[in-house]
Amino acid sequence: MTYLKSSPAQTLTAFVDGVGLLGPGLVSWAQGREQFKGSAPYQPVRCVLPAPMALPQAERRRAGAVVKVALGVSEEAIAASGLEAASLISVFSSSSGDAVNCHEICSALASSDRLISPTRFHNSVHNAASGYWSISSSSMASSSVLCARDASFAAGLLEAMTLVATEQIPVLLVAYDTDYPEPLHSTRPIPDTFGLALVLAPCRSERSQAQWTLEPGDCLTALPADRLADAALEKMRTDIPAARCLPLLWSTARQRSSRVVLDYLEGLQLTLQVAP
């Protein structure tokens, strides 16, 4: 991330050609967009995870919440973009990975029988969702997997927009978090599952929904992050790290030219310019 502060690199610009959204009270980008525009009320209800039908049956049985949310939002975003899934390079970003699987492994290790199933073991790695994605999409394109705790969404966005600018090809960004059961929940109190997928492209197309721009030297700021007027949405933004994206989605849904400040590192926020 020091690259953006120290290098006279080009402006990073990306066009949003597809969005996938899933979270508490959010079943899709189409529905969420209407809520962000004020056309429909937001009702905070438990997130419902879709079955990962794109996976073969054996892998589908092994898929946990992280895989379900990551694949669900990815499929929605890619369908909106009109691109071939297998052609997209990708960036996956999560603050915690598979929280439920972590809980089950810790429970097994704390028991008298410390054997861990192979399924639990291979789902424990942070790039599990990316691996399942490559299976479901038959993709052999490169994939980056990031973790920056509460800054994970902003870190993933920086990575994806840098790839769009340097490679001049569309990039899939997937950000997601799931909730820990107790007793880990008391230490890491993420209340529910949230996922966002974006297909970011280097050029405007008929499917583009917004233009996002990062200016080197101006994108990292000490300004406070933008807050949401809706109390329930604001609580979700602060409670779930991946939901730090909500001010950006709110501005994109309303088709306004604006500056959006997102939570990033402590004392250092990420600023984007948004245009319809």
Rank of each mutant, 00 (worst) to 15 (best):
A232L: 14
M236H: 14
Y176N: 06
L220N: 07
L26D: 05
L262G: 15
S205G: 02
I116T: 04
K37Y: 12
A165E: 10
Y3D: 09
Q31W: 12
L270Q: 05
L71D: 00
Q211R: 12
I135L: 02
A85N: 01
Y176A: 10
E182W: 12
S81Y: 01
D230I: 09
S139P: 06
F153Y: 11
S136W: 01
V274H: 06
S117T: 11
E167S: 07
G97P: 09
A129H: 03
S94T: 12
R120H: 14
L157G: 07
S81R: 02
Q10K: 11
L262C: 14
V16K: 00
F194H: 01
G82Y: 00
G18E: 08
W250R: 13
E76Q: 10
T187E: 15
H126C: 12
L163S: 07
S7G: 09
T238W: 15
Y132N: 05
K5R: 12
E104C: 12
K37Q: 15
T193G: 02
H122Y: 11
L115W: 05
P44N: 00
R188P: 14
S143C: 06
I190C: 01
G217L: 08
D98W: 05
R62Y: 04
G25C: 05
P183Q: 04
P224Y: 13
V164N: 03
L83G: 05
G97S: 08
A165C: 10
V171P: 06
S144Y: 03
R204L: 11
A243K: 01
L248Y: 10
G25V: 06
Q209I: 09
S205Q: 02
W133R: 06
L272M: 13
D150K: 14
W212E: 07
V16P: 01
P8Y: 13
S257H: 13
T193V: 04
A148E: 10
S74K: 01
F92A: 00
H103C: 15
S7E: 12
N127S: 03
S112D: 15
S130P: 02
L184A: 15
S112Q: 13
R227S: 15
E84W: 01
A197M: 04
Q269Y: 10
L272C: 13
A231C: 14
